[in-house]
Amino acid sequence: MLAALLVTIPLAAGPAAAAPTPIVGGENQSDADGLAAVLVNGQFQCSGSIVDNYWVLTARHCLYNGSTRIPDGDISVRVKSIWWYTGGGVVNVSTSRVRTSHDIAMLKLDRSANAEPVRLPTATTTVGATTYAFGWGRTCSNCGVAEVVRRATQNVLAINGNTDYYGGRAVRTDGLNGDMCYGDSGGPLFKLVDGLRYQVGVLSTINTGCTGGAFWATVPDSRDWILNVMATV
């Protein structure tokens, strides 16, 4: 069970709604390779990643408004743009799947994203590794919504002993040049291997106050489930 100091962090209402704010600090990202802005009725909801031209990976709690599942027909994604509200292209979601007991969800697109998908690792990251997080939204609790996706460098504090919002194993990080905050839910945590990005986490929860401590659903633990969804749905 998650401790009381943790909150889930979609921009819109989710299982534990809060005021919207994404990466605090960090830096603007100059490209959107492998990234997707998840929209609900055209408004920013969460971040995500393109794991196949017809599939986007995000957090399970991003697909809920309170305890109510958001209809697939209300969800779309913007791809190939550093801005969540313009550029690139918007692709509708035809169906979605959520994983039991993990803060992991998959969105099936009704047409190809025509983008280069991110890579899914077979093993989790290591304690002390430098990783990179991405998300859209505000940069402080009283700021307006950020127009451009931002990046924050993260240090891996633990790979065991923590859980995501639904009880799955979580990777814990803290920020080296920026912290995660409300609105960054579903965004990817990448580790670079030989210059290639491998997604090791999906942002699930943070410490209250958006200072230090982010918890990521562990992607390698869901790799087989993700691949099976893509192969059978």
Results as ranks from 00 to 15, higher is better:
T122N: 10
C46F: 02
T21C: 12
G89N: 12
G87H: 04
V79E: 08
G89C: 05
Y54M: 13
G66A: 10
A133R: 05
I70C: 11
A36T: 09
S101Q: 13
T58L: 03
D31E: 14
E27Y: 02
I70R: 10
G89H: 08
S81V: 05
Q29W: 02
Q29R: 09
Q29K: 09
I70N: 14
K108C: 02
Y54V: 01
G42M: 15
T122D: 10
P20H: 02
K108S: 06
A123M: 10
R97M: 14
V40I: 15
V51P: 10
L39F: 11
F44T: 08
T131V: 07
F44Y: 15
V56G: 03
G87K: 03
I50N: 09
P22W: 01
Q45R: 15
P22E: 03
N65S: 07
V118K: 01
R60E: 07
L35Y: 11
N114E: 04
T68H: 08
R97P: 03
W55S: 03
R60A: 12
G89A: 15
E116G: 03
L63N: 09
D103V: 11
Y64R: 11
P22L: 02
V98C: 09
K108T: 00
G48C: 07
L57D: 05
T126M: 04
H102P: 01
